[in-house]
Design a protein around this nucleic acid. Structure first.
Lengths: 333, 333
DNA sequence: CAATAATTTGCAAGCGCTTACAGTTATTCT
DNA sequence: AGAATAACTGTAAGCGCTTGCAAATTATTG
């Protein structure tokens, strides 16, 4: 890569001012006489001067970039969160360095280190587990971090979520009132904080309070085919109502049931705990806990901008309202 | 943001070498005696030294970041492309600065300028139109660009695609052989290069060659509800077979037809021209042109690494093989 | 063992910008 | 008008690293 074509020096020379003044103009500093500002601006436009953000970053120690740590790009849950993040980032003129960590080529903390080396001003973290090393790295560099759609088990880091416990309980209650008593929970990673500390406890508590026995928690069910395959087990276990975390997984169960000639929702009620586009385009449409994903992303990013500016944030654990959207995979829609 | 805790100076001092030597060690330069290297490495580990990528970027004029320009994150077509890109970027140790340009808050060329200011070493461009200003900006800074899943109309920039014409023709042929003669094409932006120069001409040519009349090209149909709503028009126009660019749109048509009590594929055959997860999880599953999206992304990124290294690239317009996956939305699956 | 070549290392000049601080000019006030 | 104050501009020291070049060290050779 060759030397930059036009630098702040060139502008300074042409405008007959010092580079400090040009810098002030570029950064919108008020301490410049209007007349001077105009002259400089004219030169900037004439030469098509564009500041080198890397040099700015080095000198100012702020890069106006934020790191985005996402488990899987092709999971619409994260894509929709990201969209909210992206919009607010744009609004505040931050660029996003995206790091997907599903990849086993690089250990997660390496990925995070690489992000930190790039001197990001902050990080939005979306994975469902925050490893110790990662947390330490964040604290060591005191880079602000906000968790979006997830939590850490110590609640050390700011987060934006919904009330998972309440939402799940509501979902189970819906099915319970439809007369379904063999309720089950289908999740991915049982060690994910949201599952471990919210969904599973909510389920157990619900079962207990309604004297429904121990119940069944199916774990490690992550994608469409996992969902498709687990259905036979649900049948064996006599399940008649299920909350499924991912909607694509729920669709797997749905399709499997349909292929087996079963009736949804009569034979099995399905509620997905995180609705994306997919939940609404399948047939029958899935009853879903609609998390305000876009908003969650937006709020998380907004919170991060405050933290990066050392502004006070009154509530670092935001819970946004959700909706229980009744569709055709439950009876009383 | 406070001053960096441990810098190359600290390491140099502790290891009793010059910072030049530390730099060489960090960058894997061979011209360092093994003994010295080990000593430096030991200090690096002890102090947990991490190079500041911003300073490296400024000094070396290479940031090891690439810009990713994507129209819509929540469109799985782009998400799957991005995944391929991301994996290869990781492999070559590039970070990705993601810029979504669907947003009207910022004009596209501003977004690109902001990326260029960040001194990205290269760009992967996925939007279906490359505005003149953007192309100029790329050329002015001679930043290598690769188009993934799209083309520019002058074929100035390297690209990775499939043979859209051939694929579409094959799709129409499939339906034609099923006895469908009122074939139509449903697309989004008619000015998108792929539509304007590939899909539409392929369609027109097919209709002409088979004496099927002028046919119908429905444009501006972009999402599920557009698809849902256009269905009645298809009925009016007596369409019995249709190629739809986006699968979510195809699903809209599908759902609309089902809701109207029609039979798919008997009453209407549907082929989607770009299959994502969605095409395969709906019921009936959609016959689809399966573009190797992940691979296209990976190949595009690989090509970009070569261009960034000034290596020779023998074929800058790669066409990857596609598959016509016959499912239940056409007759002879 | 000196002479030459090859290998290691250090020096120092940047990369393009920000930002205290000091210096200059313009404005206000008595 | 002259002092005090405010507004503006320039100076120069970094930010943390890379890299060409020269110096120093080590290896090779006749």
């Amino acid at each position: 890569m060759h030397k930059q074509e036009v630098t702040i020096y060139d502008v300074a020379r042409e405008a007959k001012v010092s580079m400090a003044t040009v810098s002030r103009v570029v950064n919108g500093n008020n301490n410049v006489r209007k007349e001077t500002r105009d002259r400089v601006m004219k030169v900037i436009n004439r030469l098509h001067y564009q500041p080198n953000a890397v040099a700015q970053g080095l000198a100012s120690k702020r890069t106006t970039t934020v790191g985005l740590i996402v488990p899987d790009l092709t999971n619409l849950y994260f894509a929709e969160l990201s969209k909210g993040i992206d919009d607010i980032a744009l609004l505040y003129k931050y660029n996003i360095i995206m790091t997907s960590i599903e990849n086993r080529l690089m250990k997660e903390d390496q990925a995070i280190q690489s992000l930190l080396n790039k001197q990001v001003d902050g990080v939005i973290y979306m994975s469902n587990r925050l490893p110790r090393e990662a947390a330490d790295a964040f604290k060591r560099t005191d880079t602000p971090v906000v968790l979006a759609g997830t939590k850490d088990n110590r609640e050390e880091f700011p987060s934006v979520t919904i009330d998972y416990k309440k939402a799940d309980t509501e979902a189970f209650n819906l099915m319970y009132n439809d007369g379904k008593k063999n309720l089950a929970l289908v999740i991915g990673d049982p060690k994910a904080v949201v599952n471990d500390e919210n969904r599973i406890p909510a389920y157990k508590q619900f079962m207990k309070e309604h004297n429904l026995g121990a119940g069944h928690v199916y774990t490690g069910i992550k994608d469409h085919s996992d969902g498709y395959n687990i259905y036979s087990q649900l049948v064996k276990d006599g399940i008649d109502g299920v909350v499924v975390t991912r909607d694509i997984t729920a669709v797997g169960i749905l399709n499997s049931a349909m292929d087996a000639g079963k009736k949804i929702p009569e034979d099995l009620e399905i509620v997905t705990a995180s609705a994306t586009q997919i939940a609404s385009v399948v047939c029958p449409a899935l009853t879903a806990i609609r998390q305000p994903l876009y908003d969650m992303g937006a709020v998380a990013m907004r919170m991060l901008t405050k933290l990066m500016n050392s502004e006070k944030v009154d509530n670092i654990h935001m819970e946004l309202p959700y909706e229980l959207l009744k569709k055709q995979s439950t009876l009383n829609h």
